[in-house]
Design a protein around this nucleic acid. Structure first.
Lengths: 197, 197
DNA sequence: GTCTATAGCAAGATAGAC
DNA sequence: GTCTATCTTGCTATAGAC
């Protein structure tokens, strides 16, 4: 029996998650204290702990949110008109991240944490699985329209290609977060040329 | 004026760095305490702090060492007989990492730390710059032997391709460290097919 | 549900003997 | 140069009032 309306509860959760994302992005997960998130959200310790039982739990909510949105982008793209080529599919996801204002450094921190924290790893694996399906669906649509590009069969080709497309996307994130003179459009353009098109 | 021989000093430093790498890899940089590294190295607090002034400094030594070795692999490959194709160049670097027993999770943690720690970021940028040159040299050799694959000119093609090749490598590291059912040989094989060959 | 105050703990780094 | 002992700081999470 919730003592406040679901809507109000969800709004509070969103308020806290968004505050956490801002602080995590600038200071990093590990270097962010609960006190900072609490201050950014404009709430009190007790209030925040009423919604999230630990810093880890909060981070995992951030991960779920981000992965869910990317998945939605891909499904929208798969449902739209002309099927995008592999490089364009990649562009959709990456640009979705960027245009939503997600600091890509946050993703690197998320991955780093997952290497060490089994809970986090599980959250990411579940999310990646869904994302991989969405990538597969999007690529399959394109290869069905261009069967000459898949001499070994569409299913085999798609299954083979998906990890590399995702890998190029992960490379984008790594370089974008880490390299001073990284050139995002040039990277994506080169990915487009390299992947089947 | 060193009070012990340079050789002995270097050996101690290596001993400490190697112990740190082992602990960082299994527990993660952030979750590793100096006490653990010190125990793993079989030394005392004072001894370790005599060689590295902070945990961060130690981590930065780990980064320098790892990047330096990869660079050496690539230079060796570039100097060897038949120039390897882009996908093979990638394989050389990745397999170098793996066969040296480097836990790839360590690299993700390294990147995560670099997003937040300017000193670390600088170390990595310097290393990546060197590594990028080595990649460029290796790819250039191959395109010089296969100019038909570079219709826009070798220099342009190489410069365009290097970030994506590195990106695919970074994707390998991310997926390898994070995804439960990742298949490394299949990934590398697919990369070989996707890149010019 | 939200607040303030603080318990309780872990960890990085230092001091000083040998 | 290396050791042991410990100081100091900063943080997560809880307790209890409103």
């Amino acid at each position: 029996m919730p003592k406040i309306s679901d809507a109000r509860r969800d709004a509070r959760r969103a308020q806290i998650v968004e505050a956490a994302m801002r602080v995590f992005a600038t200071k990093g997960y590990q270097h962010t204290s609960m006190a900072e998130i609490i201050a950014e959200a404009g709430l009190s310790t007790g209030a925040v702990y009423g919604y999230f039982e630990s810093k880890r739990d909060l981070f995992s909510a951030v991960a779920r949110r981000t992965l869910g949105r990317r998945n939605a982008d891909l499904e929208a793209a798969a449902a739209a008109g002309r099927p995008p080529a592999p490089g364009e599919v990649l562009g959709i996801v990456v640009n979705g991240l960027v245009s939503e204002g997600i600091d890509l450094r946050l993703l690197l921190q998320l991955w780093g944490e997952a290497t060490v924290n089994p809970d986090m790893r599980e959250v990411l694996n579940a999310g990646v699985k869904v994302l991989r399906e969405a990538f597969s669906a999007a690529l399959r649509r394109w290869f069905e329209a261009h069967p000459d590009q898949a001499p070994d069969g569409i299913d085999v080709t798609v299954e083979r290609l998906v990890p590399v497309v995702m890998g190029i996307g992960q490379g984008f994130i790594v370089q974008s977060a880490m390299i001073d003179d990284f050139d995002p459009p040039a990277y994506l353009e080169s990915a487009r040329r390299t992947l089947p098109h």
